[in-house]
């Protein structure tokens, strides 16, 4: 699993550096059923690090990137560029069985 962590860390760092990208979102935010009196706990659960997720299923490595774009370049080109960055990292790790999901959650000029 540390290999996957290294992988997602590398992908996240590369994507964050792209001018088209405003920021990464935590891939799946789950709002825990709130416990009154411990709003801290609820907020803490939400403050998960923005990152990229990767998991391996039946030999296929799935990478998911949720992001906000800056809107400086058209969104279709921007997501293709993001996918290319992910591909190049996966190529470097010799991962060929893969499925990349890039999801634009907002565009924030």
């Amino acid at each position: 699993m540390t290999d996957l962590d290294l992988l997602t860390g590398t992908i996240a760092a590369r994507i964050r550096a792209m001018p088209e990208v405003r920021r990464l979102y935590p891939p799946r935010r789950v709002l825990l059923p709130g416990v009154l009196g411990s709003a801290q706990g609820v907020l803490g659960a939400l403050a998960a690090d923005d990152t990229v997720t990767a998991e391996v299923h039946d030999g296929v490595t799935s990478v998911q990137v949720d992001l906000a774009l800056t809107g400086d370049s058209p969104a279709p080109e921007a997501v293709q560029a993001v996918a290319d960055v992910v591909r190049s990292v996966l190529d470097g790790a010799r991962i060929t069985d893969r499925m990349i999901t890039v999801r634009v959650a907002s565009v924030e000029p």
């Binding site: 709002l31 709130g34 009154l36 009196g37 411990s38 709003a39 609820v42």
Partner: peptide, 11 residues
């Protein structure tokens, strides 16, 4: 606890 209650209500 009013602040916590309202925060949770707003969420």
């Amino acid at each position: 606890s009013a602040d916590d209650v309202v925060q949770e209500a707003l969420i």
